[in-house]
Nucleic acid binder design. Structure first.
Lengths: 156, 156
DNA sequence: TAAATTCTTTAGGCTAAACTAATTTTGGTG
DNA sequence: CACCAAAATTAGTTTAGCCTAAAGAATTTA
């Protein structure tokens, strides 16, 4: 069964909503993905047909095990990319977030895994060099910025 | 004027064809992007309307200055990503190529620039650590592999 | 140079993913 | 418990990007 990038995004959004507030609502998915509610409903129907979510109209929305598995895979790539961009490259969190949101759907497992290993390796082998690199490239960075890595944009 | 990711890919393909063989043909664009010729013609018309290429039917195809500028921007990101994936992370060239082809259209300029700086910095500050990381993660890598960074897939 | 082959283009159609406007359902409140 | 506002859904369009089949142009070759 084919699953598009966009469908992955819907699944990820639902996964995060479920994790954050327990309940998944059309309105909230729409806000996250910056689309209108009718577009969400279309997507829900397709995902439901594919067995990735459990959905009856006007009823609560839930990810199936299969849907959850896909969402988790995407989401773990998201977190790893955020970590790499912020802790290794020193990219501002809002930029990192946008890049991560795109890359997570395209990146090969090998590349993702290697980035994870690289971050670990380099931080163990030469933490000072990394620290220095970050320092040289970050003008102003608030102390709580790095907390953004775990956070998942509770929408404003 | 809005320019889509896909349009960027068309421009980049044409730029590379022009660079490699001087002449840009529908058939070759189609092969590069893995689409059929009619799809290419559709794209050419749109790009022409946007002033990014010079195109009259059955006539030669050329990038305009504006089109070339966009293509070069994308292509330079492609090369930088290839370098990063291969030389820093030790990703196999064929995988690196696929990831680069996706990322090049999404990555922020800041992130791209930072990756470039990071690669330079780390290779100067602790080349041995990088070498060691690569060594530990590469099983079999043919000696000519790294030449792939400059090459641009003269299609098989 | 005429025929054959290859390349390009047109015509017509399909799908994914989005939108607006209008309708239906739900859930909270007086 | 009836009403109302908010949320969800349906219906009907639009657009980008792709396709196949068929026609038209250009190039190669006998």
């Amino acid at each position: 069964m084919e699953i598009s990038k966009r469908e992955e995004e819907y699944l990820e959004a639902m996964y995060i909503l479920h994790k954050n507030k327990g309940i998944i609502r059309v309105k909230d998915i729409a806000r996250r993905l910056k689309v209108k509610p009718p577009s969400v409903v279309d997507a829900l129907k397709k995902l439901s047909e594919k067995g990735l979510i459990q959905y009856e109209k006007y009823d609560r929305i839930l990810l199936t095990d299969e849907g959850k598995e896909i969402a988790e895979k995407v989401y773990s790539k998201h977190k790893l990319l955020m970590n790499f961009f912020i802790e290794i490259l020193g990219i501002p969190p809002d930029i990192a977030e946008e890049d991560a949101c795109q890359f997570e759907h395209h990146i090969h497992d090998i590349t993702a895994q290697r980035m994870r290993e690289f971050a670990k390796y380099i931080q163990e082998q030469c933490p000072y060099v990394i620290k220095q690199f970050i320092k040289e490239h970050i003008e102003k960075r608030k102390s709580e910025d790095s907390s953004k890595i775990e956070e998942v944009g509770n929408e404003h």
